[in-house]
């Protein structure tokens, strides 16, 4: 598998490590434990189809990437810097 890093270009999957769904970008604001926190830490969908998740280009530019891919066809549909995605979400 290959991922096209916005900074480094098309690179082998072994340069990346996987973290999980893009949910991790949306850290709840609650000060104490809450249902939102439970959701954030533990509850994930497991879609057959398009999903968006976070990858770390650890053996490259050390960017965190938001990768949109299809779990059925393994197509990589879109890659952007997680920093930019997070800024877009506020």
């Amino acid at each position: 598998m290959r991922i096209k890093c916005p900074l480094c270009g098309d690179r082998d999957s072994r340069e990346y490590t996987y973290m999980g769904h893009e949910t991790y970008l949306d850290r709840p604001g609650d000060e104490g434990w809450s249902a939102d926190w439970d959701d954030y830490l533990h509850l994930r969908d497991n879609p057959a189809g398009v999903t968006r998740d976070l990858w770390y280009h650890g053996a490259g530019c050390t960017s965190w990437l938001l990768v949109e891919r299809d779990t059925v066809t393994h197509d990589i549909l879109r890659v952007e810097l997680a920093r930019d995605a997070k800024r877009g979400r506020g």
């Binding site: 991790y24 970008l25 850290r27 770390y56 650890g58 050390t62 960017s63 920093r83 997070k86 800024r87």
Partner: peptide
């Protein structure tokens, strides 16, 4: 050391780019 570096990158880029 590696895990912490990755974590700091995550916090900076994914949680607190502000």
């Amino acid at each position: 050391a590696g895990e912490v570096m990755k974590h700091l990158d995550f916090v900076q880029q994914c949680l607190r780019p502000d």
